[in-house]
Design a protein around this nucleic acid. Sequence first.
DNA 1: GTGGTCTAGACCACC
DNA 2: GTGGTCTAGACCACC
Lengths: 144, 144, 144, 144
Amino acid sequence: MRIRVDVSRPIYQQMIDEVKRAIARGELKPGDKLPSHRDMAQEIRVNPNTVQRAYREMEQGGLVQTLRGLGTFISDDPTLVERTRDEMARRSILAFVQEMRALGFSPADIVALVEKSVNEFSDGQKDLRDSIQGIQQTGVINSE
Amino acid sequence: MRIRVDVSRPIYQQMIDEVKRAIARGELKPGDKLPSHRDMAQEIRVNPNTVQRAYREMEQGGLVQTLRGLGTFISDDPTLVERTRDEMARRSILAFVQEMRALGFSPADIVALVEKSVNEFSDGQKDLRDSIQGIQQTGVINSE
Amino acid sequence: MRIRVDVSRPIYQQMIDEVKRAIARGELKPGDKLPSHRDMAQEIRVNPNTVQRAYREMEQGGLVQTLRGLGTFISDDPTLVERTRDEMARRSILAFVQEMRALGFSPADIVALVEKSVNEFSDGQKDLRDSIQGIQQTGVINSE
Amino acid sequence: MRIRVDVSRPIYQQMIDEVKRAIARGELKPGDKLPSHRDMAQEIRVNPNTVQRAYREMEQGGLVQTLRGLGTFISDDPTLVERTRDEMARRSILAFVQEMRALGFSPADIVALVEKSVNEFSDGQKDLRDSIQGIQQTGVINSE
DNA sequence: GTGGTCTAGACCACC
DNA sequence: GTGGTCTAGACCACC
């Protein structure tokens, strides 16, 4: 048996994922300005260096553009939203299918279960979301 | 935009989830003995009290049985594996569908993508698993 | 012959029993707030962790509800008082009948003795209570 | 609300009660010899002074007789068993009726409930006893 | 200020 | 050696 305890993903990676998710969902649009790393750091109560690292890696990945003295902006790339959405979706699907296979579900089972779940899933989503005990949050920032 | 940084789920809950996953996958079978809380604590480098709390809550949830002086054992309940598998699957599906909907995929999209993914999915993937998840682990224990 | 010396029930279990008794007697009502675990700990001179454990187990048992940052409250469940009263009564009766049987009294004796005692029992006895039990108490808290 | 936590009755009182219970049940008979206080202390892992105090108080209460150099013996009083049994029963009944009244049961309720319980209560007693989670024991001595 | 988690470590009961 | 209880105290999240 294997028991794993993760002490939590590195914060800068979590931040990158959150930005990607926001882009994919349309909550952040190309051209939008991110808070300065100092502001961001203060709001989510994280070391400014950590934010800077997240911004730096996002820049290297083409996700954002940093203009000295002006700030950091979501890249003005017309394919960005699409690409990000696909990446996030691919990751999601892969992890999901792997987990379900590991639990012993056949491909047919998985499809059937998702089909059933997706249909029951109408407007009540937002409410369902809160009822998931899964994720504890440390800091939440609300810009826009 | 919302940036969330999770501090990671409580260790004792992660431990419970890992045990549930192991049961659901058949890696832990009814009657199997878990390491003593002291051993487990040492191996995953966590305080014995934390392990004990995980064990205690699993006992209260009927997942394990504790015999004083003997140890803690996976419950010898014939429905346990099935029930646990179902619970884990339900959680997995719910989280997945919510994420995909948040990314803007329609129910039909989701089903189609899962269908496609599931078919491409052969057996060699087990190995890919560890390299993908990107989860920073503190301790890993391998018993049995 | 058997001489037993009990080290006394665990403190957290005694606390749970006391709360159940108070609910069953109507001294604590659904919606009532319990003292914060820190206050309670100080007043009955017990470690805050011990109180927290009692509160946590009561929450898991549906006896109380905990609202983060607000406090711990007796569950607002209409059946709670009734259910708790029944549980406490059942425990009381069972222990009593067992003791009497062990002392060699026949079922008929027991009923007769209780019948006699119950009739002699007027209302002034509430006051006698504390002077009789002979229980050494450490801390007593009086809220409300 | 009142929350009481008893740190446990004084051990010497518990010992006296256990001896009374054993006499009342016929497990200890007039003339029987009790272990020396040193032996008793060792077996139930209690300070010899504590045992000595219990023996002293039992002697003062006429329950036992101590013959220097010979030991401590259950009093050879023909009425002892009867008297002790009555005392234990009276205490039991009183505590029980008070508790039930405090829980809001009417005299008629109490009699009815006891009547019902006593009838369901046949031979399975010993087994029922173990299933009560109430009492934790520290030391158990088995003589005779 | 409220609850929640976690560590460190003592001491006990049952084997 | 196994689990169970408890203390002392740190640090965090949510108000």
